[in-house]
Design a protein around this nucleic acid. Sequence first.
DNA 1: GATCACTATGTCTTTTTTGACATATGGTGG
DNA 2: CCACCATATGTCAAAAAAGACATAGTGATC
Lengths: 103, 103
Amino acid sequence: MKAAKRKRLEAAGWHVGTSADFLELSDAEQSYIDMKLALGDALKATRATRRLSQTDVAALVASSQSRVAKMEAADASVSLDLLVRTLLTLGVPRRRVARMLGG
Amino acid sequence: MKAAKRKRLEAAGWHVGTSADFLELSDAEQSYIDMKLALGDALKATRATRRLSQTDVAALVASSQSRVAKMEAADASVSLDLLVRTLLTLGVPRRRVARMLGG
DNA sequence: GATCACTATGTCTTTTTTGACATATGGTGG
DNA sequence: CCACCATATGTCAAAAAAGACATAGTGATC
């Protein structure tokens, strides 16, 4: 299995390697997950260019290091909401956030 | 107060007319609310072109009529998540959802 | 190989969001 | 006026997501 697909499934809350590969995601689910992955990557990139640690970001957005880690991993427990609000709080303009979501 | 601003504040969970007009929202909060409003409007528009009732949409996305009404109104109790997932489920392409968010 | 900074993951408790329901409001045709 | 349909609004129990914390993994650098 390709790493990209594995990542997607795991983001959807599935643990690949144990049982589920046949699992089919609807287009809507797929897009939703892709959006989260895109924002997670964007967050990681943004953080990198600013040379901030996850702990730094957590402080800036009033959250915790673990949650930032989960955001970047597009963990199933993080919402689009949290990702979007985090990026906006970091000063990423709305327009740019929107473009990230576009694919 | 202009209707647009009123709508924004109410979406943020504030009941205008009673006390709070001086209330200041950060850029991030403002953008976040604007995004929800944009998606709410988009949902209403999408639904209109397809000539569906809120009840119809509720059935399609496995929710309730009241929640659809709140989505369209960008009620403070609806998340970006729900709006995005609803639009995607209705078949609106990811790219288009993203453009809606851009402003 | 020990220490240190950073990141990942698991598990709690609390808070927020959700769907459901009831009910109110608004419009339309009989 | 009265049914009838669509939409709006309030409340609530249940579900999901949140922040917090502990802890484990990963690399440097010394």
